[in-house]
Simulated assay, not measured.
Amino acid sequence: MTKRLALISAIAGGLIAATAGLGYTASDDFDLSPQQKDRVRAEKSEKAIEAVSKDFKFISDGKLTIGLNPGNPPLSTYATDATTVVGYDVDLAQLVADSLGRELVLVPVTWADWPLGLQSGKFDAVISNVTVTEQRKEKFDFSTYRKDELGFYVKADGPIKSIKEPKDIAGLKVITDPGTNQEKILLAWDKQNVGNGLKPIEVQYYDDEAVKYLAIESGRADAVFSVNATQAYKAKVNGKTRLVGTVSGGWPITAEVAVTTRKGSGAADGITEALNELIANGKYKQVLDRWNLGSEAIDKAATNPPGLPNS
């Protein structure tokens, strides 16, 4: 059964006030300062530079221009000055720029606008949690850098201990995001359960993050199933939810997110080489751990690997 719940601004305000009263802030666990004094840096890699096609034209001489979508901590968000963009995607972009011997330039872009922005030459590459799919590979090249992982999160002191497979969600009230892979997976699991005679789930949707987490706190929902990276960040910051299971964003097959470049532009191999050197020297893992994303590490970056099939 699917149920769309109305948003209540007064409730959202109450949750924000309650969370503030606990004394938790993002800066307690993550450096959101514009200075980013602990940012990991890398040395220039001649091998990575040589792997970039001589025909590739950077947007600006001596610079690497990266498009990214702020607003999804810890991947990318605005610092305490409300101007500087910080986060895992920014740190990874810095490492790639360092490896290619270039100054990093960041261009904030909405999720809906990155494909056109990349194709029209507004930036050299996009680092914004873009999953490799066969459909996207028709227009873009990819250099993988992180697992596409979804997570089930529940109330920190609640009774649910593990959600690993379809039967574990039978009869639960689960919040997810409409029109996403996680919704598709959740509904597929529910269909399988019902076919096996198990109780159906109640799917809930919220447009407001504060109301979403109030639903978990109040018991109106049992779990949130969404992007693991952002959920892990929230759990670390407020201590009110905890992870009880992860699922690949491409379930039942594995999916990865990647640095995205223009199709046939010649940049992907150089970026992939840079990423593999960063994996080998440990700087890649340092950045993941800095943002509480160590569980999403990959063993090797690849250029244009098999992506999620066309639906």
Rank of each mutant, 00 (worst) to 15 (best):
K283F: 07
T2L: 08
A93G: 08
W189M: 10
G87T: 12
P108W: 03
S60N: 12
G21V: 01
F142M: 09
I201E: 12
K236E: 04
V224S: 04
E277V: 09
R102Y: 08
G71F: 09
D38W: 10
Y153G: 06
N310V: 15
N69C: 13
V194S: 08
K139C: 00
D89I: 01
Y284E: 03
W291L: 00
Y88N: 06
S248R: 06
G151L: 07
L214W: 15
A267I: 13
P159E: 13
K3T: 08
V227S: 13
A20D: 14
G121N: 01
N69E: 08
D98H: 03
A188W: 04
I201M: 10
V194A: 10
A156C: 03
Y213A: 02
E273H: 04
V107T: 13
T241I: 15
K3P: 01
E43W: 07
G195E: 15
L118G: 12
F140H: 11
F30E: 03
E277G: 15
E183K: 13
G121T: 14
L100A: 08
E46H: 05
V85F: 08
G117H: 11
R146N: 14
P306S: 01
P200F: 01
V259A: 10
D289C: 04
D208W: 04
A51L: 05
F123M: 06
N129M: 02
I175W: 11
G158E: 09
L100F: 06
K236P: 09
A221M: 09
D299Q: 14
A12H: 14
D289E: 11
L92S: 03
D113N: 13
G71P: 03
V287F: 06
E165D: 14
L64A: 05
A42D: 09
K147L: 09
P306Y: 03
A297Q: 08
A255G: 15
N276L: 05
I127W: 00
A297T: 00
T180R: 11
D38K: 13
I163N: 14
S9G: 09
Q36H: 02
R102F: 05
E273T: 15
A97C: 06
N196P: 00
K167F: 00
D157T: 09
P166K: 11
K139V: 02
Y88R: 04
P73L: 03
N129D: 15
L118N: 11
N193H: 04
E103D: 15
E209P: 10
Q94D: 12
K240L: 13
F30L: 04
T19C: 00
K240Q: 13
G158C: 07
F142E: 05
L92Q: 13
I11M: 10
A18M: 10
I66A: 12
I163T: 03
W114S: 12
A97E: 14
L293K: 02
N69F: 01
T272D: 13
A12F: 07
G62T: 04
N181H: 11
V40H: 10
A97I: 01
Q35K: 14
A18V: 05
L64I: 06
E217I: 08
K57D: 01
K63F: 03
I279D: 12
A79D: 05
K164S: 12
D113H: 08
A301T: 10
E138F: 02
L64H: 05
A156S: 15
A17Q: 11
N310H: 09
G282M: 00
A156Y: 07
